[in-house]
Nucleic acid binder design. Structure first.
Ligand SMILES: [Mn+2]
Ligand SMILES: [Mn+2]
Ligand SMILES: [Mn+2]
Ligand SMILES: [Mn+2]
Lengths: 223, 223
DNA sequence: AAATATTTTTAGACTTATCTAAAAAATTAT
DNA sequence: ATAATTTTTTAGATAAGTCTAAAAATATTT
């Protein structure tokens, strides 16, 4: 079977994929609707279509999960999305909070040669500007050994490697606070009252709320 | 009024634009249908919609032409198409006969920052891989002073600067015959019988049929 | 185990873009 | 100028994707 999916179908697969990754069980109609900013009834209709194409497994009232083919397609779309984000930041002067909307469009362009050519042009980047791993041409991911900053204890040292929330608002906050991916941090203090943290980042002491620390991914230094 | 057109609408504007450029009079429903490989009745429907949005001027049974806004949009889409073609050839290893299909998709991606960023990244190219001029950000074209090779007379010298037919078949023929944009040529002989031409290209004598010579654009050397 | 609340599906309607077949207008030929 | 031909428009259908409102199934309370 030849798979020439619509942008809408691809977006559904991507949504189901990422919801499944966090929940680890069949995804509900409502969750998909919320993610895609549409109505549950529309989701049901689309799911039936995808089930017919054997891209999802669907049991009425029990949620959906991706078939192997469905997952392959979803991962391929994610690959394109993240490669384009790298391109936009590295070569076209985009900020990391500006790339998502454009990548949402570019990820649907269909051309194997384009995707793999872009990958090679960028020298096979392994992470996108938000620290998310980029699947290779066979759909293989790097499985990251990652923790959320808020779970670190006092005096633990680690490196900031990603963002959980990649909204423009959050990313701009990080820019202003001079918090970048790749920098080493040390937890100096944790406030019991509001769970805020005092960090040492590149010689600077910075205090961040739990809202912030729970949306930053870190990789702990082995010691 | 905000213009967020569908890909289909943009393709109609582009088709009307290029048909108008050659005909220099309102474009017929049938011509548009042929160009877009659709049916005349579908074209009539779409034209009505575009007329309502004031992107085309339309008089029943008398054909369509673009309004100023419609033309601006069409030219902007053409700009994107050609910029992407340059990118694909220069940076992703595409051949000039491979770019069109992908550019047809990329031209519909909406982001001013993307288009202008790409333009700057490419160092503001003035021509695409087929020799077609690229409109600048304000929609201004270079008006080329161009002739068709078949109209040259014996002993006239000129430079190949573009292709009229940019089908993959024709472009591949040119590759095989080692006929590239930018090379100087001289007309050695014209055959009365079939209008074929004997050319001198980079020291080589090459004979080409009229089918070929009438699809190559040249710029005559001033002497 | 019923009653209540929530989630999911169905039914029917709407929009965009397309098609075929028929009607209307314009063009060309006689 | 009439007739024949071609082009263009209209009418009515279809498919994709969406919506609202109502019905059905599932989950939660009591
Ligand atoms: Mn993104
Ligand atoms: Mn990203
Ligand atoms: Mn092209
Ligand atoms: Mn071109």
């Amino acid at each position: 079977m030849k798979f020439d999916l619509s942008q809408t179908e691809e977006n559904y697969l991507k949504a189901i994929y990422s919801l499944f990754v966090v929940a680890n069980k069949p995804v509900s109609t409502n969750k998909i609707a919320e993610r895609l900013e549409t109505k549950a009834s529309s989701v049901t209709d689309m799911i039936k279509k995808l089930a017919e194409k054997q891209l999802v497994d669907y049991v009425k009232y029990q949620g959906v999960s991706l078939t192997v083919t469905g997952k392959d397609i979803a991962v391929h779309v994610i690959r394109k999305h993240r490669l384009w984000e790298v391109f936009l930041v590295r070569h076209l002067g985009f900020q990391w909070d500006e790339v998502h909307e454009v990548a949402e469009q570019l990820e649907h362009v269909k051309s194997r040669k384009l995707t793999d050519g872009l990958d090679a042009f960028l020298d096979f980047p392994r992470y996108d500007p938000h620290g998310d791993p980029i699947p290779d041409k066979d759909g293989n991911f790097i499985k990251r050994n990652i923790t959320v900053l808020s779970s670190l204890k006092i005096n633990e040292e680690s490196k900031i490697v990603g963002v959980k929330d990649s909204s423009s608002a959050f990313l701009k906050y990080l820019d202003n606070a001079d918090i970048k991916l790749g920098v080493e941090i040390k937890v100096l203090h944790k406030e019991d009252f509001d769970n805020s943290m005092l960090l040492l980042i590149e010689g600077q002491k910075i205090s961040i709320s739990q809202q912030i620390s729970s949306n930053l991914y870190v990789k702990q230094n082995k010691n």
